[in-house]
Design a protein around this nucleic acid. Structure first.
Lengths: 161, 161
DNA sequence: ACGCTGACTATGGCGAACGCAAGTCAGATG
DNA sequence: CATCTGACTTGCGTTCGCCATAGTCAGCGT
């Protein structure tokens, strides 16, 4: 009951996962606090102290993580000004950051299913335009659900040059 | 461009994310090495030294992480015996571990899109029963794709008692 | 000019994660 | 019985992530 390694990959000793995108992604989102800051960004958090407080981390750590996240391009630091206030900076999601949504929701769904206590999932997700429930799915281009044992893994065809 | 917080959640200060399933999931999968061990399990890795070597971590760390992962029920430690060999233990995916597939694939997809170098994604995923390409999607029960700004977040209706 | 507030920066300390190197232990093999 | 191998364990030192406290700095309001 695992994925099916095809082609060159069939010989497990002939390749290493050193270019693995999962590993690279984990280098960027290495820490709990980074990921939780992204969660707050999804929920609409923007201001420095608000983000730090909601995630429950010290300001020093928040500053460090936000610096990393902006350096990696997941958030951008934008100046803004409320009337009668001095100019400040807010942290807003970039496209790159927004593309993490499936990761966040997949993790949430897994936690809901396997880690939530007696009270079940704390949050419910809804598609606001149609009211349907929202889920993360592994699907193929012919609209099948793909379970692990039907998942084939290949070396990508090298795009020429 | 964020999720839409509905109901009680609309007042951001009236709730905390302390029961957040994302945070709980990150407590279990807190470290890079835990997650990469799960990746290897998806690829079919089972034996201790094989897992440690492929992930690129020391045996001491592998032992510690595998102990955590089995304690949390993501892997189970099963005895097995190859002919002419002594009995050993292998680490196999449980249902709980297998359910992490969407998380792993979502992370891989994100890395492929945003972190892969010139050479693009290193691996290609295929549905072996139909040949279609595989992707992770955020979808609603009426089969719409759900982008972030159409995602409504509510307090879950408490299942009675 | 002075204070206030939001957004940080600096310092010190702790525990967790890790690598490396060495040691243990069980059981099949010779 | 001695050896060998896979599966760990132990010990040590380093780095990393984090907290707590205190300090800085910019500019709006008075």
């Amino acid at each position: 009951m695992t994925a099916v390694l095809e082609g060159k990959l069939a010989d497990r000793d002939a390749w290493t996962a050193d270019r693995c995108s999962i590993a690279k992604a984990l280098d960027v989102l290495g820490t709990r606090s980074s990921f939780l800051l992204m969660r707050e960004a999804f929920y609409g958090g923007r201001r420095f102290d608000e983000l730090a407080r909601r995630v429950g981390i010290s300001e020093a750590v928040a500053a460090a993580r936000l610096k990393e996240l902006t350096a990696h391009g997941l958030l951008s630091r934008e100046p803004y000004q409320e009337p009668g206030q001095r100019t400040r900076h807010e942290y807003v999601l970039t496209d790159k950051g927004r593309d993490l949504l499936p990761v966040a929701l997949a993790l949430m769904a897994w936690g809901d299913k396997h880690l939530a206590g007696d009270r079940g999932a704390p949050l419910a997700l809804r598609h606001i335009t149609c009211g349907g429930d929202v889920a993360v799915e592994v699907r193929c281009s012919n609209d099948h659900d793909v379970p692990l044992d039907e998942l084939g893994v290949n070396v990508a065809r090298r795009p020429w040059r």
